[in-house]
Design a protein around this nucleic acid. Structure first.
Lengths: 122, 122
DNA sequence: GTAGGAGTTGACGCCAATGTCAACTTCAAG
DNA sequence: CTTGAAGTTGACATTGGCGTCAACTCCTAC
């Protein structure tokens, strides 16, 4: 598929897809005319990239991480031990993020619930 | 306490504290000389602000939200119903964020575990 | 072949929280 | 008083993922 279809199917702008390629996160074949051509696995990869961005990883880290993950592209590469150490740091950071989010979530929920209770009472 | 101590105790830079004040998220008394003076509750508020930032809320939303939350400053204000609707949207977004984070967390964990298993095997 | 939608690269802009520097003032200790 | 750390305001810079525009090329249907 070409870039427009991938964008539609993954919910990511074409601008972002080109940016991902420039950052080495996503690869594509080219037609003789120079247009990008993607395989079926591209969509999954894009979704994965988005999730990792959402987890607060920057392009560079995602780029080193992606080849170590098992996907339809083939077996995973062996991660460098320094990368593993790095990933453990990231994992901890993500755990803290999840904790923070859950607290914020409860905070919001408290306000929402209080408001609806008050609305019902008054 | 003054700004430096609050910064140390909350783990937030003085720059950020002044920014929070400018955004209407944090208030302070002033000494005759014009220096900021914070009460004991300031630290909790700063932590809360940080959590809400981490949850992806922008300054403006935090500013409207904070007065609706119960804290040592006094009773909560009644939230506007449009704010409540807004907060429900945010809550859903946070729920999705948590889901994404958990997936990413598992992804990283998989790579880490695979690496340590391989390291142990080889 | 031709029209027009889709693709290409490159450049510039944005946002929003913070870092950072400058020039100046206040505060606390000796 | 004096001195130096800490505080003040204001302005500018940064970061990084992505929007957006421009100028040009490719692909497909007629």
């Amino acid at each position: 598929m070409r870039i427009g279809e991938l964008a539609r199917r993954s919910g990511v702008s074409t601008r972002s897809l080109r940016y991902y390629e420039q950052q080495g996160l996503l690869s594509s074949e080219r037609t003789p005319g120079g247009q990008r051509e993607y395989g079926e696995t591209a969509r999954d990869r894009v979704v994965r990239i988005q999730e990792l961005y959402a987890a607060g990883l920057c392009s560079a880290k995602i780029a080193t991480l992606l080849p170590c993950m098992r996907d339809a592209d083939g077996g995973p590469a062996e991660p460098d031990s320094s990368l593993v150490a790095d990933l453990m740091v990231e994992r901890d950071r993500i755990d803290r993020m999840i904790g923070d989010l859950q607290r914020s979530r409860e905070l919001l929920d408290g306000v929402i619930k209080a408001a609806s209770a008050e609305g019902a009472a008054v």
